[in-house]
């Protein structure tokens, strides 16, 4: 197990390097640069800018300097667009926000999703089941960019219960709508996976044995059904967790949360090279890390799996 973890971490580093190279090349190949502007700047002004930000260097050198600064000083450079901020500052400000609403959404989606899926499985082929399945497919196909404006319309404009946007350091009133908008689709997926996984376990032999032994039904469900049924759920939750804590463009756009979800898209469109790279590396590193966590969890839940 330990050797396996070490091996995985060893692979993570070249993976990140490949990610950096791909993104770097794609980014610089895109037409226009951070200083392309509607009012074209005189050549001298552009030359000064390129010199200041090192864009006058050959590409390989820029890339090498970039990686070196990260390794040496954990310095991701200055933002090209937010001129009085560094990438570290941009991420330090936005990531905690997404981490908060992402984690809450994750917990909500997991609890509600598993509960919904489990109930549906236990009441298979009753109206409860059909309702639960209907809700989960519906919730899954309804895009969050439809849910978000509806939420604002209902809870802010019509009912006046919740503020339509802002973050205010994570005050509860400001967190509710982002969490609903972000968690819905994940909740639906978790419910569907839980349902079919539970159904499979419920029809398996060891449940039949447990029942035959005369164990009370709640014990059968809690002890013998839920844990094994969680395997596929866990493998879904790992990547889902990463996507959720790295935020959502839709949430940041509609609720002015100031999270990191929008940073990448903005940075890509503004050609803010350094912010784009910073966010990509952050998301890549988190993905690799949580994939590893999932594998370890997997081994813990299902001792049959050995690496």
């Amino acid at each position: 197990m330990f050797a396996y973890i070490v091996k995985r971490i060893a692979v993570a580093i070249p993976t990140l390097l490949i990610l950096i190279i791909i993104s770097f090349l794609l980014m610089h190949a895109a037409p226009g640069g951070p200083f392309t502007s509607e009012k074209k700047y005189p050549a001298q002004v552009l030359a000064n800018l390129n010199e200041k930000y090192g864009l006058d260097q050959p590409l390989w050198k820029q890339m090498a300097t970039y990686v070196w600064n990260i390794v040496r000083h954990f310095d991701f450079g200055p933002s090209f667009v937010y001129k009085d901020r560094t990438v570290n500052e941009v991420i330090a400000q936005g990531f905690p926000v997404t981490l908060v609403y992402g984690s809450i959404s994750f917990v909500v989606a997991t609890i509600v999703g598993i509960a919904l899926g489990a109930v549906a499985a236990l009441k298979q082929n009753t109206w409860v089941d059909y309702l639960a399945v209907g809700i989960s497919i519906g919730a899954q196909v309804l895009p969050s960019f439809v849910i978000a404006p509806i939420l604002v319309l209902v809870f802010t404009l019509w009912l006046g219960w919740l503020p339509g946007g802002g973050w205010e350091h994570g005050e509860v009133r400001y967190v509710i709508m982002p969490v609903i908008a972000l968690s819905t689709a994940y909740m639906a997926s978790i419910a569907r996976i839980t349902r079919s996984s539970m159904l499979e376990v419920l029809t398996s032999n060891h449940i039949r044995t447990a029942r035959a032994k005369g164990l009370p039904e709640w014990k059968v469900i809690l002890r013998h059904t839920l844990k094994p049924a969680m395997l596929p759920v866990v493998s879904y939750l790992g990547p889902a967790f990463v996507t959720m804590i790295t935020g959502s463009v839709v949430v940041d756009m509609y609720f002015s949360t100031g999270g990191i979800g929008r940073s990448f898209v903005d940075a890509a469109l503004n050609r803010d090279y350094s912010v784009m790279m910073g966010v990509t590396i952050l998301v890549g590193a988190l993905t690799i890390f949580f994939n590893l966590v999932v594998d370890i969890l997997y081994a813990w839940i299902d001792p049959k799996i050995r690496y």
């Binding site: 503020p163 946007g165 802002g166 002015s256």
Partner: peptide
């Protein structure tokens, strides 16, 4: 100054008095 990217969302929040 509040950042609201979408102008329609801006209008909703204006009408809500924000």
């Amino acid at each position: 100054g509040v950042t609201i990217n979408d102008e329609n969302a801006g209008l909703t929040r204006f009408l809500a008095g924000e």
